[in-house]
C-alpha cells in the first residue's frame, strides 16, 4: 500500500508539471523496435518492443470450414495471451477479461481495416483459409493495445501464404506473400486525473483512470475502445482522434518499410 502511494504521487506530480518519468512528451511514443520472422515455423511473426513492453505477434494460416453465415469468406481469429512470465500481475488460468478485451480490440482493428481480405481467402466450395493471429505478451510495461496491434500488423505484412494442393497444405518452399487488404495501427491514450498521455508505461497505467484506443488507417477510423472507470469528454475525444491520425503515420510507415 505504501509503495503504491509513493509511486502514484510521483507520477501525478510529474504529470502536473508537464513531465513523464522517462522524459517523454505527453504525446510521443517510446522507442519502437520490430524484428520480423522470429518464428520461422509461423507463416508470419514479429517481435515488437515499445520501451520495455515486449510482445510477439504471430500468424498461422490453415484450411478450415467457413462460418455458416459467411460461406464465401475466410476466417480471422485473434487472441491475446497475457503470459504469467510477462508480469507479476498476470495469473495462470483461463483468459482474463483483460486478455479477452485486448484480443477483441486488436481483432476489430484488423477486421475493420480489411487487413485480412476475407473474400480472397476462399480455397474451394467447402474450404476457406482461417487466419489465426496470436498476440503473446512477453514483458509488460504498459500499452499492450498498440504494441499488440503493431506486432499483428507487422506479422501480417511479412507473412507467406500457404498453398492447398491435392488436399494437402504446403507451408514451405516457393510461396507467395500474403496480401493484406489494408493497414491500420492504433494509438492508445491514458488519462490520469486531467492529464492525457500517449503510450503509457506500466507505472502510468497502474494509476490511469481511463484509456482509449483509436485504430485508424490513412483516411478513416476503423475501431475504437474506451476502457476503465474514468471518462472522456466529447472535446477530448475529438482532439484525440486528430492526434491519432497524426501520430499513427510514423507507425504505419515503419510497417510499410518492412514489406
Amino acid at each position: 500500500m505504501q509503495i503504491r502511494t509513493v509511486t502514484e504521487d510521483f507520477i501525478a506530480d510529474l504529470l502536473a508539471n508537464g513531465k513523464r518519468e522517462d522524459g517523454r512528451d505527453f504525446m510521443s511514443y517510446r522507442d519502437i523496435k520490430v524484428q520480423t520472422g522470429i518464428v520461422p515455423n509461423a507463416e508470419g511473426s514479429a517481435m515488437v518492443t515499445f520501451g520495455d513492453t515486449k510482445v510477439i505477434g504471430a500468424v498461422k494460416i490453415s484450411p478450415g470450414e467457413p462460418m455458416p453465415d459467411k460461406p464465401d469468406e475466410g476466417n480471422l481469429m485473434t487472441g491475446a495471451e497475457l503470459h504469467p512470465m510477462a508480469s507479476e500481475s498476470f495469473d495462470t488460468g483461463p483468459p482474463s477479461p483483460d486478455a479477452i478485451e485486448l484480443g477483441r480490440v486488436i481483432d476489430r482493428g484488423i477486421r475493420a481495416s480489411n487487413m485480412i481480405n476475407p473474400k480472397a481467402l476462399v480455397i474451394n466450395d467447402e474450404l476457406v483459409w482461417s487466419v489465426f493471429v496470436d498476440v503473446y505478451v512477453l514483458n509488460y510495461d504498459g500499452n499492450l493495445f498498440d504494441a499488440g496491434m503493431f506486432a499483428s500488423a507487422a506479422a501480417l505484412n511479412t507473412c507467406r501464404m500457404p498453398k492447398y494442393e491435392d488436399e494437402k497444405v504446403i507451408r514451405e518452399g516457393n510461396l507467395e506473400k500474403f496480401k493484406p487488404g489494408g493497414l491500420a495501427t492504433s494509438c492508445t491514450f491514458a488519462k490520469l486525473g486531467k492529464s492525457i498521455v500517449l503510450d503509457a508505461s506500466g507505472n502510468e497505467e497502474a494509476f490511469m483512470d481511463a484509456r482509449i484506443t483509436i485504430s485508424n488507417d490513412e483516411a478513416v477510423i476503423r475501431a475504437m475502445q474506451k476502457g476503465l472507470h474514468g471518462s472522456f469528454t466529447n472535446a477530448e475525444l475529438e482532439n484525440l482522434i486528430d492526434i491519432s491520425f497524426n501520430k499513427s503515420k510514423e507507425l504505419r510507415k515503419m510497417i510499410s518499410d518492412l514489406r
Partner: peptide
C-alpha cells in the same frame, strides 16, 4: 462525459 465507447467499421 463519455463512460463507454466502442466502435468498429469505417
Amino acid at each position: 462525459d463519455i463512460l463507454l465507447l466502442q466502435m468498429d467499421g469505417t
